[in-house]
């Protein structure tokens, strides 16, 4: 056995995989949440749709997204595998366990919270990622007045009203209408897909439950990852704890939860 396999087959090495992939997924959540805040912009979804084009065509983002998919799989598989092995380390359980006397409940239910999140990721990627890549998302045509900045949107269709599509993910042309330059943008309307999907109250409920699960999972998970890496010191522990609680357990899940609620209740 090489030293590498030996290291990553030890309990500490396996935890290291879970910690590194987990912390990488945390950085993804920051990007994903801030990027998706464009859903709240009042421009018929133009900036969100153009952001979607950028995120699915930029070579660097595409590379990172494949690392991301592998990280999700590794994190979930390793986490569940370790949870199974840990259960086998105590084949006969206790009749009475007073867990709340010595630990926070989130730390004891990471496997269950993680499983909820895994189910959510499958549903979520099926709703949007698969739909965007392989589904039939209609195209939208934006006309932006380059002098006033006013944006109008209409479905991209032929004269009979049948939806048309383009070969690329987005096309931009500058035309002059009545002597004023206008930018015509044609792109896939993921924004409309999002708005449509979040009209379903049951699905919104699933999203909200999942955001609670992510919040509780990260409340323990973010700071736990640093401990596994051996980073535990009074100098920076308060900063890690602050990020764990405020950014990863509260702000990020709340930001994500606001999106389906916005489309269900306000839009």
């Amino acid at each position: 056995m090489s030293w590498l396999t030996r290291m990553f087959s030890s309990t500490i090495g396996q935890k290291l995989i879970v910690a590194l992939t987990g912390l990488f997924l945390c950085t993804f959540l920051v990007v994903h949440m801030t990027g998706n805040l464009q859903l709240f912009k009042d421009d018929h979804g133009m900036s969100f749709n153009m952001y979607s084009v950028f995120m699915t065509t930029n070579p660097l983002i595409k590379t990172v997204s494949y690392i991301l998919y592998f990280s999700i799989l590794f994190h979930a598989f390793k986490g569940l595998h370790l949870a199974y092995k840990n259960m086998k380390a105590r084949p006969v359980g206790y009749a009475v366990v007073n867990g709340k006397a010595n630990s926070h409940w989130t730390s004891r239910y990471m496997g269950i919270l993680g499983t909820i999140i895994l189910v959510f990721i499958v549903v979520h990627m099926n709703d949007f990622w698969a739909e965007y890549k392989f589904g039939h998302i209609p195209y939208v045509q934006y006309t932006e007045n380059l002098e006033s900045g006013e944006i109008t949107a209409k479905p991209y269709a032929d004269e009979a009203g049948n939806p048309k599509s383009i070969a690329n993910k987005a096309e931009e042309t500058i035309v002059s209408i009545n002597g004023v330059d206008h930018k015509i943008t044609i792109t896939k309307d993921l924004y409309a897909e999002v708005a449509e999907t979040f009209k379903n109250p049951l699905l919104v409920a699933l999203y909200l439950i999942s955001m609670f699960a992510i919040g509780f999972h990260l409340y323990h998970g973010f700071q736990s990852g640093f401990q596994t890496l051996g980073l535990n010191h009074p100098r920076y522990n308060p900063a890690i704890q602050f990020l764990s609680t405020w950014v990863f357990a509260i702000i990020i899940p709340a930001g994500f939860a606001a999106m389906p609620l916005y489309f269900l209740l306000i839009k």
Binding site: T11, I12, Q14, K15, L16, L82, K85, N86, A89, R90, G99, A101, N102, S103, H104, S107, R108, M110, H220, Q223, S224, Q227, T228, L229, G230, L231, N232, H233
Partner: peptide, 28 residues
């Protein structure tokens, strides 16, 4: 023995108050 998920139950129950920082040192 199982692997550590940093619940902190060990430190809370240790009759000698051994600190979790030792686990971080061992991981390092």
């Amino acid at each position: 023995f199982g692997s550590c998920t940093n619940t902190g139950a060990c430190e809370a129950e240790c009759p000698k108050g051994i600190s979790l920082s030792n686990i971080a040192r061992m991981n390092r």
